[in-house]
């Protein structure tokens, strides 16, 4: 018997495809998310919108809270660690949760190195803004990717930018000859072997979700039509007027992303969406997507 293999790590992400992973800060919210059809929950103390509002250093959540959320649901539980903080990751692995998000939403602990994720039995998801960044994370052992977007803004524009970047780069790769692949790998600072694999298969080596700023069913369907495998919703659900209803609607829109009639139906009377922030109004040093290297 082989435990925690690459296949089981990547495989769990495959099982989450076409689904919605929701940020929750209490066991009650976790149950609402599960009831609404979430495929997993992200357990944390503050959703990104509050992290943004409160400022200060954002760290891994209290294990007590994470365990209470794990106890409340039957679906997989994820939690975030700071970029490069491998001891927070060791702690989460010891708690026996299902996935770790090495996340730019928290304050980075290391400004040069990400966690060497190969050393862990627990799988990791990491954010990316483009193909090179995504493949660097896979080289470090990430078994799942997500766009970074700009978390806690309720503004989908950055998630769209990052998804577009990744998939257009993949399309471009497929038209290159072998000689060009070497240079391309060098230019995007990604391992040549992974670049070649993407060129041959026409897809990323791991599942890629969208995250960062998704607030409506139409946002979710937009990202799905752009080619992502599933959706993370952070602040978008529990910062809205009717979280349970909005959560169900985003789940339905993620499944039926190609059926405008269904998206229209579930979008009716959802109550107030979270308040959005224009990216250009955010001071440069408070942008989260730029964290990570």
């Amino acid at each position: 018997m082989d435990k925690s293999t690459w296949t089981t790590k990547v495989g769990l992400a495959q099982m989450l495809k076409g689904g919605v992973i929701m940020d929750v800060v209490t066991p009650e919210q976790a149950r609402i998310a599960e009831d609404a059809g979430a495929v997993a929950v992200m357990a944390l103390e503050r959703v990104p919108a509050d992290i943004r509002a409160h400022g200060g250093v954002a760290r891994m959540s209290d294990p007590e809270l994470i365990l209470a959320i794990k106890e409340a649901v039957t679906i997989p539980v994820m939690a975030k660690v700071r970029i490069g903080h491998f001891v927070e990751a060791q702690v989460l692995e010891a708690l026996g949760i299902d996935y770790i998000d090495e996340s730019e939403v928290l304050t980075p602990a290391d400004e040069e190195h990400h966690i060497n994720k190969h050393k862990f039995r627990i799988p990791f998801v990491c954010g990316c803004r483009n193909l090179g960044e995504g493949l660097r994370r896979v080289a470090e052992g990430a078994a799942m990717l997500r766009t970074k977007g700009e978390a806690g803004t309720g503004n989908v524009v950055e998630a769209v930018r990052h998804a577009r970047a990744v998939y257009s780069e993949i399309r471009r790769l497929q038209t290159m000859d072998e000689d060009e692949l070497f240079t391309y790998a060098k230019n995007i600072q990604a391992p040549y072997e992974l670049v070649r694999q993407v060129a041959e298969t026409g897809r990323l080596p791991v599942v890629n979700f969208a995250a960062g700023g998704i607030a409506t069913p139409a946002d979710a369907a937009l990202l799905m039509q752009l080619g992502v495998d599933g959706i993370f919703v952070g602040s978008g659900i529990f910062k809205s007027g009717d979280p349970a209803k909005r959560a169900r609607a985003i789940v339905a829109a993620t499944t039926h992303y190609n059926e405008p009639e269904i998206i229209a139906e579930v979008s009716r009377g959802l109550g107030e969406a979270m308040v959005g922030i224009e990216i250009s109004k955010i001071p440069h040093d408070q942008l989260m997507a730029g964290r990570g290297w």
Partner: peptide, 28 residues
């Protein structure tokens, strides 16, 4: 089997297939 940390792969025979064991991937 428990959380994701207990996910595993194993080779076992399946009734109705030939005698060669099948690689089985168990995820939660």
């Amino acid at each position: 089997f428990g959380s994701q940390l207990e996910s595993f792969e194993i080779d076992l025979p399946v009734e109705g297939l030939d005698s060669k064991p099948l690689r089985m991937v168990f995820i939660r």
